[in-house]
Simulated assay, not measured.
Amino acid sequence: MDFASFFANYGLIILLVALLVFMFWSSRRRMAKQKAEQEAKARQTVPGAEVLLQGGLYGTIVEYDPDNLDRPAVVEIAPGVDIKVHSQAILRVVDPVAGAVTGDEYVESEAEAVENTDAIDDDDTDSKPKA
């Protein structure tokens, strides 16, 4: 059996298998890329970030819960004008807040601030202000 007859008998099957493998690999790669983009969007969607809504409105995030996407996000579209929108109506973050912290980072910093305040209060109890 030479190469030409082998390819004539099994070439189409090999080609179909290669095509299926490529489609599977391509699909997995695209899904991983979309997941990474969603995670990046979730990290940037913090209070104070400017966002574009699907309706074409620009606003600033006031309240957003990335853990519960069924809960509406509160977006300020003008000074003093807050609207509630579905959290998935946020199309993209236009202007990520420089130095913005995530919820977990905020909780950690608050805990450290409380610990530092307690340490300072313990040191200041012995000294009294002089008038």
Rank of each mutant, 00 (worst) to 15 (best):
F3M: 13
S5Y: 06
S5G: 04
F6C: 02
F7Y: 15
N9E: 15
Y10S: 13
Y10L: 10
I14W: 09
L15Q: 09
L15V: 04
L16W: 13
L16H: 11
V17P: 01
A18P: 03
L19E: 10
L20Y: 09
L20M: 15
L20G: 15
L20S: 13
V21T: 09
V21R: 07
F22C: 10
M23E: 14
W25T: 11
W25R: 15
S26R: 11
S27K: 11
R28H: 14
R29G: 15
R30P: 01
Q34I: 09
Q34V: 08
K35R: 13
K35V: 00
A36S: 06
E37H: 03
E39T: 09
A40K: 11
A40D: 14
K41D: 01
A42N: 07
A42L: 13
R43P: 03
Q44H: 14
T45E: 01
T45W: 00
V46H: 01
P47N: 10
G48P: 08
V51E: 01
L52F: 01
L53T: 07
G55N: 14
G55F: 00
G55T: 04
G55M: 03
G56D: 00
G59H: 02
G59A: 05
T60Q: 02
T60P: 07
I61M: 02
V62W: 00
E63M: 06
Y64E: 00
D65R: 03
D65A: 09
D65N: 10
N68R: 12
L69P: 06
D70A: 10
D70V: 15
R71V: 15
R71L: 14
P72E: 02
A73G: 04
A73W: 05
V74W: 02
V75A: 08
E76D: 07
A78W: 00
A78V: 07
P79S: 12
G80E: 04
D82I: 08
D82R: 15
D82K: 12
K84T: 06
Q88A: 13
A89N: 14
L91T: 11
R92G: 05
V93I: 10
V94M: 15
D95E: 15
P96Q: 07
V97S: 11
V97G: 12
A98S: 13
G99F: 03
A100W: 00
A100H: 06
V101T: 14
D104H: 05
Y106K: 12
V107F: 04
V107Q: 03
E108Q: 11
A111L: 06
A113M: 08
A113K: 13
A113Y: 04
V114I: 10
E115C: 04
N116H: 04
T117R: 06
T117M: 12
D118H: 10
I120K: 12
D121V: 04
D122C: 09
D123K: 13
D124H: 05
T125M: 03
K128S: 08
K128T: 09
A131F: 10
